[in-house]
Simulated assay, not measured.
Amino acid sequence: MQDYDEFVDKFKHKKTTDDCYTPPAIYEAVLTWCEKEYGIDRASVIRPFKPGGGYQREDYTGRVVVDNPPFSILAQIVDWYNERGIKYFLFAPSLTALNYAQRKGMCFVFVDARITYENGAQVRTAFLTNMDDCITRSACDLSRELDKVNKQVKEEKTYGRTQNRANKVVKYNYPSELMTSARLGNLAAKGVQFKIKRAHFVRSLAAQKPLKKAIFGGGLLISRKDAADIRAQEAQLQDAADIRAQGVQLQDGVYTFALSEREQAIVDNL
């Protein structure tokens, strides 16, 4: 005999990524960053995406959209806004954000953010905007703030979601002139500052086609100069991290040395 709870559960609304309602603290962090970065007036901001609402019926005169839209119709939304010259800064799933790369005037803002939404879904999130002057960029300060706020959100409410990781994931190693969504997010996590103004969108490399492989979410081919600049920043940040790991801090040409755990133990016993 079927359990009563299982029977009732069949009739409950099954939540999807379109039900990823944004925790207020997360939204506030994003809005505050947009105010600082793009000089927008908070009073002009509109959030048109509501359960059962119709974003096309809103009055956008003098307004700027900062919101988390239904991901399933994101392409339709950005096309509608672009056609009408409506300014926006929209949440988007990070791993597929580059699917919109062929749309003119759009910038992909990458952060290292796995946001926990109100329904418990944890989604790697990036942002789409038409208020920037480049194709893609990092937002390291926003990334740090979202990481801090997201930890607070998770502490306030534990969701207990688990994933089956039994299957081994095949990893691809791409040349530095190819930027994937995952790599762009990783660069933002490391603190690499970049703004790429010229790029070419591809869904796969020629070398992948005989193997019937493709780039998940697509990728951007960037110039050798941009790739070299990013590699140089990564190397510099890695060197700084290595120095810190060895108990050494370098600032303004001055080395500051720290005691190791063994040396601290000796001092404690003196």
Rank of each mutant, 00 (worst) to 15 (best):
D141R: 09
V149Y: 00
V153G: 01
M131K: 11
M131G: 11
C140D: 06
V153A: 00
Q102K: 14
K104F: 09
R114V: 10
L98P: 11
R137D: 02
Y117M: 10
R144C: 07
F110K: 00
A113Y: 02
D112G: 12
E155I: 01
F108C: 13
K148D: 01
T158V: 10
Y159H: 13
A139G: 02
V109Q: 03
C134S: 09
A126I: 09
R114H: 13
K151D: 00
L128Y: 08
L128D: 07
A113K: 02
G120N: 11
T162I: 13
D147N: 08
C107Q: 11
A121K: 12
I115E: 04
Y159R: 08
R103W: 07
F127A: 06
Y159S: 07
E145Q: 04
R124S: 15
Y117W: 13
C107T: 15
S143Y: 01
I115M: 08
V123C: 11
F110T: 03
G160R: 09
P93T: 14
D133L: 04
A139T: 02
F110N: 02
N130K: 13
D141A: 06
T96L: 15
A126P: 05
Y117N: 06
S143E: 04
S94C: 14
I135G: 03
K104I: 07
D112N: 14
P93C: 13
D132A: 14
D112K: 12
D132L: 07
N130P: 12
D112Q: 12
V109M: 06
